[in-house]
Design a protein around this nucleic acid. Structure first.
Lengths: 206, 206
DNA sequence: ATCCCCCTACCGTCCGGTAGGTAGTTGAGA
DNA sequence: TCTCAACTACCTACCGGACGGTAGGGGGAT
């Protein structure tokens, strides 16, 4: 046996019930945050009883932690993929691609990333170590991107790259509050945001 | 009788107990948000029983609404005062002064403004009408400021003023997450912020 | 005498979490 | 091939505690 997958007893021949729980939890966390979202709500959305959740997760905090880590992972992978696809472009276009990928992860179909932002931005409680780690790794992507842009001369000389990063991520995540798909276009927004960070078009480099 | 002030029975010769409740509520809301902050906590911080809060406010929502409205009012007044003091300056310096006033209101001694941001940013529940109104009025200050800057030629021609405003306010409020008084200087941050929005120094106008 | 401010005591509801049981599925051994 | 223990996934029922909110009383100031 090559252990094809984890077998399940009840939920169909496929064992996707953990993912289903995470999906519903992400949706509810996205719109309600940590304290407004109860395990009963999540269980009801999944179609099981609250106690059954404890078969998959040891506590509410562990469930939420799983959702949040997935959310950070998703946006991280999306941005990494966008940067890989734009490997040949200049740093300014790479910045714009990364911004677009971040916005798409926030406002696309998945609820994970926005749930992650909602739960741990303006954070109330202590942040779990695993979340802190994955967030820091994601921040490093932006640090690297801005350093690259700076070396290429795409940032005005006086600006602090760290302040720039904090501004940019804050503004990007703040879009949760005002972004509506019918009123804004992610590509156009990305162009606006990138133009703010790197005003002069430095993209001659191949 | 010229009605010098509201009289109180118990809380000293001055009737400041409503303000005290609001102060403590603001402090707790700032660090815990709406759902994590309980009326018992607030009452305990004030030094009274939970039921006594209902002598001053009809419900938790009404109490929070009062805190939030004060928070928006404070930052509004602070920014208006800063703009009045910089009435003779150019639009670029006026922008920087407004940014500094906003940051000072967020991170200064009062907890009201950060409580307001915390409660109604990434908002879960419906926003009361009074809060929506005062927030819209405050947003108009920035709309006017950016329009003024645009007319003076301080904004790059392609940029959308509305996107600029959303970016700026989002980045400003996001500073709640990372600002530490010992690590950042509000004046320096304001210069960074203003330089992003209006990169070229347009301030020749008197 | 009245009013203001705060009190004690209590309400129903919901919370996260636990105890213990019951089907369906699996794989090994006779 | 049949049996059976082990395991998985889920269930009902319950726990103590915290929540927002209410009822009604007391005591000091005017």
């Amino acid at each position: 046996m090559t252990a094809p997958a984890i077998r399940t007893g009840r939920a169909g021949p496929e064992g996707g019930s953990r993912r289903l729980i995470l999906d519903m939890a992400a949706r509810l966390l996205r719109s309600g945050g940590y304290h407004q979202t109860s395990l009963r709500e999540i269980a009801e959305a999944v179609g099981i009883r609250k106690a059954s959740l404890y078969h998959h997760f040891a506590s509410k905090e562990e469930l939420v932690e799983a959702v949040v880590n997935d959310g950070v992972r998703f946006v991280d992978e999306a941005v990494a993929a966008a940067l890989a696809a734009a490997a040949q472009a200049g740093p300014r276009q790479r910045l714009e691609a990364a911004i677009a990928a971040h916005l798409a992860a926030l406002h696309g179909h998945g609820d994970y990333t926005s749930a992650a932002i909602k739960v741990f931005t303006f954070g109330s409680g202590p942040v779990p170590e695993s979340v802190r780690l994955s967030r820091r790794l994601y921040e490093d992507v932006w640090r690297g991107l801005l350093a690259e842009l700076r070396e290429a001369g795409g940032i005005a000389p006086g600006r602090s790259p760290e302040a720039l990063r904090l501004f940019l991520l804050g503004a990007l995540n703040g879009s949760i509050d005002w972004y509506r798909p019918e009123r804004f276009d992610i590509a156009a927004l990305s162009r606006e945001f990138a133009a703010l960070v790197a005003p002069n078009g430095v993209d001659a480099a191949k």
